[in-house]
Design a protein around this nucleic acid. Structure first.
Lengths: 193, 193
DNA sequence: GCACACGGCGAACGATCGTGCTATTTTTGG
DNA sequence: CCAAAAATAGCACGATCGTTCGCCGTGTGC
């Protein structure tokens, strides 16, 4: 890895941290430079604009999320087991709150602000929904779920469980948050069996 | 209503609009002043600090939400009907995306930033959850829901449906968003019957 | 051995931020 | 109607924002 690429990664790692707790919009070149021990201009040179930085942060976080959530699920046996691994991995990353927190806050930050960042974000969400729906579809084909179950609806409902879980855990500090999420998940699975 | 109170309200109305699309943190005294045709200092004098402004915006939006969602529900007959009215009213305000959008984005903006704004936000969420749980509890007492159903879990699950609905509608622009929300709601009700 | 690209720094820019001060205008109560 | 009080404006401040430009050290290919 070239020196430039090495610094770029280091900056992006710091940026995900910052953006995860304050939102994508709270990313500032200055604070990011201080955090990484670089000069503003030196850091800025790696990204041609702030918007480009934000998009790269999004993509970097996306890779992390795929690695930590999607990949474990795809490594698990098809059907219900795979869905369960997806759910548990998702719970796992939401526990630490890195990429997951970034995506969710970005979803509300940019849901009304057109531009390249929003477009990129929407595409990532759609791709992810498709992945989840596809896993569920496979589960139907393998006989784990009802023939007439709706994969997109399942992806939708599962996502809802994760959203409220994240809020319960991080905003409200609810000690029972994970328990509630599991109960909701169990019922969702059962009603699709 | 005194002149001061009148302008204060006008400012807060504009502020809710701004904050609903860009987040609470995107509120700036300058842009708010321009939007309301006032001078920065004139506007600032109404709120002793930006943090105070943010909290007042939160409270103002809270009153709107109570008026548009809680009150209609409490005016409906106890039990399942009341919960349904709550859900439909909630869908209604989320359609326009004012206070609702503000609260949700604020939840993720401040979930990791201690301070008065966060504290106020948490309290509002807890109060709202209690209200929903209480409506459900009444529904149990009236025989609409299962005796062993969990009111807090119901409030939790319902909130999850609304969160993903809001995302589906506003970020993804999903035409079927409302349909999906209703389906999830129906299933939630049925599984608690 | 030398030109050259690359990574990074320092300084500066115009803009905007939140927030004080001091006037000045407008509203209000008696 | 008049004085007290409240509402608003004007201006300035230090800080920080994103961005640009010119410079410098360091290693690399020719």
């Amino acid at each position: 890895m070239s020196k430039g690429e090495e610094t770029r990664r280091a900056v992006l790692e710091a940026a995900v941290d910052v953006a995860a707790s304050g939102g994508l919009a709270s990313l500032t070149i200055g604070s990011l430079a201080e955090r990484t021990g670089m000069s503003k201009s030196g850091l800025f040179a790696h990204f041609k604009s702030k918007e480009a930085l934000q998009i790269q942060v999004l993509e970097f976080a996306g890779e992390t999320f795929v690695e930590d959530v999607i990949r474990p699920a795809l490594s698990a046996p098809r059907g219900e087991k795979r869905i369960t691994v997806l759910f548990e991995s998702w719970l796992g990353v939401s526990r630490e709150g890195g990429a997951e927190c970034l995506f969710t806050s970005a979803a509300w930050e940019y849901d009304d602000q057109p531009g390249a960042v929003r477009d990129r974000l929407v595409r990532m969400y759609l791709d992810f929904n498709d992945s989840v729906a596809q896993m569920f579809r496979t589960g139907i084909a393998e006989g784990f779920f009802a023939e007439d179950a709706d994969p997109e609806q399942f992806a939708h409902d599962l996502h809802g469980i994760m959203l409220i879980h994240f809020q319960a855990r991080h905003l409200l500090g609810d000690a029972k948050a994970e328990d509630r999420a599991r109960r909701a998940f169990t019922r969702l699975i059962e009603s699709n069996r």
